[in-house]
């Protein structure tokens, strides 16, 4: 089955999150990281931060944790997330969806108090055959920016695989 590459370039979401102490601390503890920089503002200050910094992979969780109660920008997808649509259609014929690759570019650390905005876009969609099985890859990129300065903070690239 050929993939419909018209999805490339489509927006996936627009988001706004406020970084708060509770979710940052809880996230660090779920990684069994008990470094006080993630729980004690005075330790964070000693380390040179204005408030608690977020662990490096926190941006991947912000979409779920940080949107609650925040004013959101208009949804550019008109209700249909293109990644969910592609994977949903493939899953109708069975198989499994796996997180294949992940890429972070850190422009600066995320710190409690930040208000960040992001836009996501589908970067690629392709198929590969491995051991007689077709795998479909979909790549989404999300750029997080500081709402106040407009400067980029983290760029994330997420590669999801559907395998039959």
């Amino acid at each position: 089955m050929a993939v419909d590459t018209s999805v490339i370039g489509k927006p996936t979401s627009a988001n706004r999150v406020r970084i708060e102490r509770g979710p940052v601390s809880f996230f660090a503890s779920a990684l069994k990281d008990h470094n006080p920089v993630y729980s004690d503002p005075s330790a964070a200050k000693v380390a040179g931060f204005d408030d608690l910094p977020a662990p490096p992979t926190f941006s991947f969780a912000m979409l779920h944790m940080g949107k609650v109660g925040q004013e959101q920008p208009p949804d550019p997808t008109k209700g249909t997330h293109p990644m969910n649509e592609v994977m949903g259609n493939l899953m109708k014929e069975g198989g499994i969806v796996l997180h294949g690759e992940q890429d972070f570019v850190f422009h600066r650390p995320i710190v409690v108090g930040d208000v960040l905005v992001s836009e996501g876009v589908i970067k690629d969609l392709y198929e590969k055959e491995s051991k007689g099985k077709v795998m479909t890859f979909i790549v989404m990129q999300t750029v997080w920016k500081d709402e106040k300065s407009g400067e980029p903070v983290v760029t994330e690239t997420f590669n999801l695989i559907h395998r039959k």
């Binding site: 990684l31 470094n35 931060f49 992979t57 690759e101 992940q102 650390p109």
Partner: peptide
């Protein structure tokens, strides 16, 4: 997968400091 990634990021953070990472793929 991101739990595994988070544990590895913790090792890198412990080694280089919480503000040092520029790329992680």
């Amino acid at each position: 997968g991101m739990l595994t990634a988070g544990l590895l990021a913790r090792l890198l953070k412990d080694w280089f400091g919480p503000e040092a990472l520029r790329k992680f793929q």
